[in-house]
Design a protein around this nucleic acid. Structure first.
Length: 457
RNA sequence: UCCGGCGUAGCUCAAUGGUAGAGUAGGUGACUGUUAAUCACUUGGUUGUUGGUUCGAGCCCAACCGCCGGAGCCA
């Protein structure tokens, strides 16, 4: 008999039929009435399936009575209507085959709550918990939604290099990739790639090459930052979604960013309700309400200059001074999204001095066509811009930034040969998973988090 | 990296400078279509590490290690 997912049994009709299921025991409750209740979870959905294991089963005393949380079993039996109140169907076992026992004295997971901090120390097992199962399913849904959204709009999914010699300036410190011996003065001529290389901090420059040929493209891959950031919003290895559109300006970019975010919120509401209800109950009681609100609402869009004016008029006092030319601080972003507008805010046209060289210089010669999408409680979820398509302006900006035009020869070639206006953005995937689950710490929305001092597992 | 907090039983947490406690998990027994099952009894400790103050340190001091929160950097 073919194994069936618990999800299909729980969602299927209540009718007597033979099934075969396999999974891991969540709990076992014995009844001296002559049977045991086994909660079985196979990851196919949030809920577990109740198995009724009768004491008349041949291995009841020898094996079933030794089934503790974490044990793996295969059950064949009959789907029947449940006599109990907690579930509509259950499986009356005909046989329970034990694949692997799990000793409770050694097993780090408990039936009771285990802290997320503790679970990070046993990250190889934490996927077996309710929370991480739910996070994993929502994360998967968001990834699928991303591909579906861009595919529907005619974007091509491209894969840009992980190892690269180009430092996407302003993005952060790079991890070095080398085969040279440690401790010696490096001679990069003798290194594997005959030049200094590192792990990518952004696929943007490569994506631009393809956008300037195929029109609309996006990357969705791992990104690495060797910053010593210790916050609940940063990882050294994270996943980034980076769309890039030809023949598009900043307004097109901001429109697409908002459409994409709304699409994601609607997608998880339509596909992950069981998991979202768990998060709403146990992690963040405002989650469902805010997802529903955002899924249908317009975002507020203001320029940086307008944002500064609003902040200057604010009655609250800020730790950092509000001054045109200085970057917005976390407290300023929070004021805009959580106090002033109480919704996502897209801020555009930042001063050129605080943004990267590749962002298109505006007519005022003081600002660039940049945008950040700010979410309440999460902060910056998206950073993007219209790219500078004028070769002379780009070259001047590279020099201004203290960089070498030679190093960016191929990037500048895009402007030399058939240059077109184009724009794009980067979205931190874990941050959107955080937002859609209500999880406080970004380390708990990725399988095996990499942070300063931590790369176990 | 900076600021602040925390580190005690397998886990979650208590404990005026004066005998180390509870819940939960585990064990034994009772009871039961249970569902965080319930009830009784019970096992379980180098109080993060090192040094210091004190008659006496889980508690006070110092350094270090680890974790958490905030800030910075960013997505």
């Amino acid at each position: 008999m073919k194994r069936e997912f618990i999800k299909s049994i729980l969602n299927g009709p209540v009718e007597e039929r033979e099934v075969r299921v396999a999974g891991w025991v969540r709990t076992r409750r014995d009844s001296k009435g002559g049977f045991s209740f086994i909660e079985l979870n196979d990851g196919s959905c949030f809920a577990s399936l109740q198995i009724i294991a009768d004491a008349t089963l041949a291995n009841y005393e020898s094996e079933i009575s030794r089934l503790f949380p974490g044990s793996s079993i295969v059950v064949t039996g009959k789907v029947v209507a449940s006599q109990g109140g907690g579930q509509s169907v259950e499986v009356q076992a005909v046989s329970v085959k034990v694949l692997g026992f799990c000793e409770p004295t050694d097993y780090p997971l408990q039936k009771q709550r285990v802290s997320f901090e503790r679970l990070r120390e046993v990250a190889h097992l934490r996927a077996r918990t309710n929370t991480f199962g739910a996070v994993t399913r929502v994360r998967h849904a968001l990834a699928m939604a991303t591909h579906k959204f861009f595919d529907d709009l005619g974007f091509y999914y491209i894969n840009t290099p992980i190892i690269t010699a180009s430092d996407c300036e302003g993005a952060g410190e790079m991890f070095q990739v080398t085969t040279l011996e440690l401790g010696k003065k490096p001679d990069y001529e003798k290194d594997f790639f005959r030049q200094k290389t590192g792990l990518t901090v952004s696929g943007q420059l490569a994506a631009e090459c393809f956008a300037c040929s195929l029109g609309n493209v996006y990357t969705f891959g791992p990104t690495f930052r060797a910053e010593n950031s210790n916050t609940r919003r940063h990882l050294a290895e994270f996943w980034m979604v980076e769309p890039e559109m030809a023949f598009a300006d900043l307004a097109d970019d901001a429109d697409m960013a908002e459409d994409y975010l709304r699409y994601l919120f609607n997608y998880v509401l339509e596909n992950c309700m069981e998991d979202l209800e768990f998060f709403n109950k146990r992690i963040d009681t405002t989650l469902l309400a805010s997802l529903r609100k955002l899924a249908g609402s317009e975002f507020k869009r203001i320029t940086y200059t307008e944002a500064i004016a609003i902040l200057e008029q604010a009655t609250v006092s800020f730790e950092y001074p509000v001054k045109w030319g200085a970057d917005l601080q976390s407290e300023h972003e929070r004021y805009l999204t959580e106090v002033k507008f109480e919704c996502p805010v897209t801020v555009t046209d930042y001063p050129k001095g605080i943004k990267s060289f590749y962002m298109r210089l505006n007519e005022d010669d003081k600002t660039v066509a940049a945008m950040d999408v700010l979410l309440p409680h999460v902060g910056e979820i998206i950073g993007g811009s219209q790219r500078e398509e004028r070769l002379d302006v780009l070259s001047a900006r590279i020099e201004e930034a203290g960089l070498s035009c030679d190093d960016y020869w191929w990037y500048r070639d895009l402007r030399k040969f058939g240059s077109v206006p184009h724009a794009g953005f980067g979205l931190g995937f874990e941050r959107i998973v955080q937002f859609c689950t209500g999880m406080q710490n970004i380390r708990d929305v990725i399988a095996f988090p990499r942070t300063p001092g931590n790369a176990e597992f």
